[in-house]
Write a protein that binds this DNA or RNA. Structure first.
Lengths: 223, 223
DNA sequence: CGACGGCTTGACCTAAGTCAACGCGGGTGG
DNA sequence: CCACCCGCGTTGACTTAGGTCAAGCCGTCG
């Protein structure tokens, strides 16, 4: 609710999506970002931040909003490997060019930090990179070995935790995004949401607001 | 074949699995490893290198052999998030304790580099960490959005590439390991191997030696 | 008010899982 | 030295979770 309002008030002001502004406000950020020249990129929904194959010239930190990182197969199948929300750093690449796409999901602000990376910056960003690695590996367990119910439960709990463990979650992303993140179809995602609602585990206020009524029941599902 | 012989000749000599030896031979290694004090750990098949929950006190590099990194659900379901072969570095952790298990698959030698990591080492290991991240994210695409045939094809091609793109592959791991890596059952893995054999895409010399007869046909499968 | 896109629900289908039997090869003990 | 055993792999018959296809709903926006 709060986040939603914030996004909308910004979206009114920042209708020129993709506009780049010099930024001098000190927010919470990764240490090295504070001492680097940086810009903030304001993005409309579905605005591409970088594309697969592009040279990787920067790191990115979500100021507000949400971002999806994904990859496509040639027949259009899509796998979202990560969602990133406020405070998180993304855009790491192994060999200087992007292997994934990054897009804003909703109206978002992205802090941009130009490369190259020196030794100090390496030390500062290593924890972020390792966090991303652990998250990806844990997500492999969810996708590789858990069923649809367990995947959705894990997704909701992860999202709740990253939004400060409040019981009410605002979903920035569509059912399609959730399906492509969890390796499921939108129909299956929808059915699991409905099942959780019928079981009293969650309440749905519209399609994009989820209240976790029994978070422990959800936790019990994903072991 | 060559690798297999190498492993067996070592295994005869190094029957005391888990024995730790001071090592001063200069091999191919990550830069920082050369200047760090290090040891080499010789492992029998299924020897645990570290366990989930343990304090992370070192980084590891495969000298020879192969390692599996995995995680368990409480009911025993297992997801292998990565296999590591000669030259590869593993054991990165985000907050000082291991979230995964690491085990030798076959007779292996593991170079051990004690932490903590200074700034120089950070810069040196960042590329390895980023490579692991990219691999994990690409594996998400395979597991999340590809069918059994595509998964096995991708697995064989990845293994071939990491063994120097020779057409003949020695599988260090069992069908169970492959299934737990690809999010499939052993029966499904076995059926796909048989299908590839019947189609003339591969030749099987015993269960653990695979000859890629038509690598391009396999490549065409996983887009 | 109507159209459109995102979401839900139902009926049906299929890829992969489960269960079970059997084959094979390497290791051991009689 | 041979016979047995055991663990790994293969194959077949059947089941099922989740995908596919299709219809309809609901909220938003022009």
């Amino acid at each position: 609710m709060l986040a939603h309002n914030a996004i909308h008030s910004h979206s009114a002001v920042l209708s020129k999506a993709g506009h780049i502004a010099r930024n001098d406000m000190p927010g919470q950020m990764a240490p090295a970002f504070a001492t680097q020249p940086h810009q903030v990129l304001f993005c409309s929904p579905n605005k591409e931040i970088y594309a697969q194959g592009e040279r990787a010239t920067a790191l990115y930190q979500v100021e507000f909003g949400a971002v999806r990182i994904y990859r496509l197969l040639s027949d259009g199948r899509r796998q979202i490997s990560a969602f990133h929300v406020a405070g998180e750093v993304f855009g790491f690449e192994a060999d200087g060019h992007h292997r994934f796409f990054a897009e804003a999901i909703c109206h978002s602000a992205i802090r941009v930090c130009r490369l190259p990376i020196d030794a100090d910056l390496s030390r500062d960003i290593l924890p972020s990179a390792l966090l991303a690695l652990v998250r990806a590996q844990e997500h492999l367990l969810v996708i590789g070995r858990q069923n649809a119910t367990e995947r959705v439960a894990a997704f909701l709990l992860d999202l709740a935790e990253r939004q400060g463990d409040l019981p009410q979650i605002e979903l920035a992303m569509s059912r399609t995004d959730i399906g492509d993140y969890l390796g499921l179809t939108i129909e299956t995602v929808s059915r699991v949401f409905s099942k959780f609602r019928e079981n009293g585990h969650i309440r749905l206020q519209g399609a994009r607001t989820v209240v976790l009524l029994k978070p422990d029941a959800l936790r019990a599902m994903c072991v």
